[in-house]
Design a protein around this nucleic acid. Structure first.
Lengths: 235, 235
DNA sequence: CGTGCAAATATTGTATACAATAGCCTGCAA
DNA sequence: TTGCAGGCTATTGTATACAATATTTGCACG
């Protein structure tokens, strides 16, 4: 019933709850777990061979970043963002990302540019491939571009905000994206990186805003009513 | 040992953990709980007459918004933001709040302006009073001004981000604020509200940035070494 | 055949019990 | 007196047990 969830067995210094959180998060962001999927505490616990206590902690954590919706006495579900939420997510990105790229343009060291270039190359490579796994990896790489920008910008708080927004965007695209093409225009990422390389913050900013617009334009934020039905039964 | 924590007994629809979280949050933001204070699970549990389970949930939640620091096998402490963190918090606010006021200027209905005016009046009233309680209430009112702006802006995600930033700012001011005067220049809030009332988004934006600058200028972000010492022993 | 109630089942909410780790205190030796 | 060693206590980490709440199933009745 539950999708396959690899447990990487990589132990961090923090509690085992963190590992569950990370595994679930990755599965959600990479869209292996569909929005609306129920995450039963007992089931997840059995998968990871831990008690419900730890699972609860992980689910609660994920609910704080909006990836999981917990309903009292009903359980946890992979978030199923409404069109309204989707709009808010992208509105938030439009408010936040210009500041990020501006700061990134100011801070970027040559090594940062290299890092970005590597990401873009990887993304490019994956674009050429076929198959579900390649698509997943591409989704991840595409998100990582934005997250790397946030890291370069050098404000860990903003970075965390972006983390949440990118993850939730992935859910939204999974639900409302219509173009068969990749999640994000890869070409636009390249242009942004180029602007950053030349230190042209203003241009990078503008490109980023266009980029976000393009992503959102590709969404079909419904009149669909099939969604509501499904939401009613799944959530 | 622990400061007095009122439990308002107001039951929300959500779990009892939420009430503990809210009570602790309020105590931290209003500076009744000093940064660095240890929050023992057993002690807090006894205060609220609940098991450690719920307390843990609350503490974990607070750690997600940066108000509490949880160290593995050591326990939870009221966050003790470093000067570096303080700078990041205000940098984030400078990146976020202009967008908020711009959106607020666009969205503000007359009733919103009324709400802001009420807040300002309350703030004004409290400024005139003396005593710790008045000071606490003033801190809260000052923060509420910024939060209300975020609410008016109409993006619940940005609102949550601001929630976190305002709360953490309160901690920073508690630690590094030096002016005996109130936390925030009250006068500046009034000017921002006035700009909003006339729909002058550009002006409101500019005033907000100045306002944030003023708050940060009032901080003494150390060469102090007493802080490090205290941090070493308390955290 | 459909509807509504009721017991049964399953799942979550909370508390408690047990395990593991950290910090402290005592006592001994140099 | 100082420094270290060892166990001792206190606190957190995790698992389990019990309680409360939803959901489902089955049956009776219209």
């Amino acid at each position: 019933m539950a999708a396959e969830l690899s447990l990487p067995a990589e132990e961090a210094a923090d509690g085992g709850s963190q590992q569950i959180r990370d595994a679930l998060r990755e599965a959600i962001v990479e869209r292996r777990l569909a929005p609306g999927t129920k995450l039963s505490e007992a089931d997840v616990g059995k998968l990871f061979k831990v008690s419900r206590t730890l699972v609860r902690g992980a689910l609660q954590a994920l609910s704080y970043e909006g990836l999981v919706k917990v309903e009292r006495n009903r359980g946890a579900f992979v978030a199923y963002p409404s069109p309204e939420e989707a709009r808010e997510i992208f509105a938030a990105r439009r408010q936040i990302e210009p500041g990020i790229v501006t700061a990134a343009a100011r801070n970027a060291a040559p090594s940062d540019i290299v890092r970005l270039r590597h990401l873009l190359a990887e993304e490019q490579r994956l674009t050429g491939q076929r198959g579900r796994d390649a698509r997943r990896a591409e989704i991840k790489a595409s998100g990582d571009f934005h997250l790397t920008l946030a890291a370069i910008a050098g404000n860990s708080i903003m970075e965390r905000f972006m983390d949440e927004l990118v993850a939730r965007s992935s859910l939204v695209i999974a639900l409302y994206g219509q173009s068969t093409a990749s999640s994000c225009g890869h070409r636009e990422h390249e242009e942004i990186a180029a602007a950053l390389e030349t230190g042209d913050a203003e241009k990078a900013c503008r490109l980023m805003l266009h980029h976000i617009d393009h992503i959102e334009t590709d969404l079909d934020l419904r009149p669909k009513n099939g969604i509501d039905l499904r939401e009613a039964l799944a959530i």
